[in-house]
Design a binder for these strands. Structure first.
Lengths: 213, 213
DNA sequence: TAATGATTTTACGCTATGTAAAGTCATTAT
DNA sequence: ATAATGACTTTACATAGCGTAAAATCATTA
């Protein structure tokens, strides 16, 4: 006996609302409980006016919920500008635009990112999810580096990887937060990162000059 | 009635052993449970052949236990060389020595640091402890920067702070881990950090040249 | 209007937390 | 010698969160 069709607009809408309420509550809880220590599905449920099993019903697991929060954030954080930046005919300008885009992104909801990136509580599980989401940035940087270094001396793969890793590190949330140091504006930090990135690119493009400080 | 004197060598020794066993068990548990998610005092107690209240008796709180693990690590990690490095008459060489010292330190027990720095589980509480312990590095960098930039053009405090923050960021565990990328040797990473640091120092020492990449 | 199935809730067993009260045992004083 | 003392450890308790299974709710469909 094949299950008969069933589509309920009223219930579907209600469920959608529930989902939204849970998602918002989760974001609030995360922002408040800096770190993931005090972030409990119990609390999320309470704040959303719903019981915990409902949270599980909507987002299979803690990890999936966190991913949903992150993705919701990403959708509003201005990352869509990345495509245009990558299309910039000047690869150097593209890199600067990428840096600006991510500085905006990280400062867009700093408290939430701070909690999200203190991912110890969830173990390596969620850490993997974050890494997967950062792969887009990494890939974009790899493409830019390919264009930047192209035609110059160093086409060695390992060396290019070094530059990509450096740019990846200095455009990470952790680096942004470190340079923010609790008081610097997003724009000041952007300028600092830009210069560090420019130095790195210069070093990898130019013929190996003196290495002394 | 003043409490009478009591000093028990036998019991004190036993307690000391218990403490050691707990500390070692905690380190093992941390290394295994990457992140602090799966790190429970319950598990530590079990692994140490002791009940949980004993853990509390020896180290007042979860936080104190983690601090003890970190400090135990620091004692064996070679940080004692910092004094000599700071005494180097050449501030640039001192900086390079500091970088080498911390690269050694971070790679000394990488798995343990990785867990320790995924501090989300413990909330901001333990994060503060870590920050406090990193202040020594920050202070050392501030001193070196003072000597490096001294006599040159930029004596502006804010600008010097920028350089200190950059050097602080690139000598952090997170940056080391990012550049390690799961495959690079500590020495390769050291070389990369050295160059980034050198570039930063050069930029802050030299009269402001072109800022283009 | 009774059966269906999506959604939510109640209920259960488990692990961990932090503390308080009781137990164990080497040491001290009478 | 032996009873009191106090350091160290454990048993016991109350609470909170986790994840799942079974029941309850209720809009839709036959």
């Amino acid at each position: 006996m094949p299950p008969r069709p069933y589509c309920s607009p009223r219930r579907a809408a209600a469920a959608q609302q529930t989902r939204r309420r849970i998602l918002d509550a989760a974001a609030v809880q995360l922002r408040q409980s800096q770190g993931i220590g005090a972030f409990s599905l119990e609390g999320v449920g309470r704040a959303a006016g719903v019981t915990r099993p409902t949270v599980y019903n909507q987002f299979g697991s803690r990890r999936t919920l966190l991913e949903a929060v992150f993705d919701d954030l990403a959708a509003r954080g201005g990352l869509h500008r990345l495509g245009a930046a990558m299309g910039d005919p000047d690869a150097g300008a593209g890199l600067r635009r990428l840096i600006a885009i991510f500085c905006d992104f990280w400062s867009f909801d700093h408290a939430l990112f701070a909690s999200l990136y203190n991912a110890g509580g969830t173990g390596a599980e969620f850490e993997e999810s974050l890494q997967a989401r950062n792969q887009r940035r990494r890939h974009a940087l790899a493409v830019l580096v390919g264009r930047l270094v192209d035609g110059e001396g160093k086409t060695d793969q390992g060396v290019r990887d070094e530059l990509v890793d450096i740019l990846f590190a200095v455009t990470s949330f952790q680096f942004f937060r470190a340079l923010s140091a609790g008081h610097r504006s997003a724009d000041e930090v952007r300028r600092m990162i830009e210069q560090i990135a420019a130095d790195a690119v210069r070093r990898f493009s130019a013929p190996p000059a003196a290495t002394t400080a």
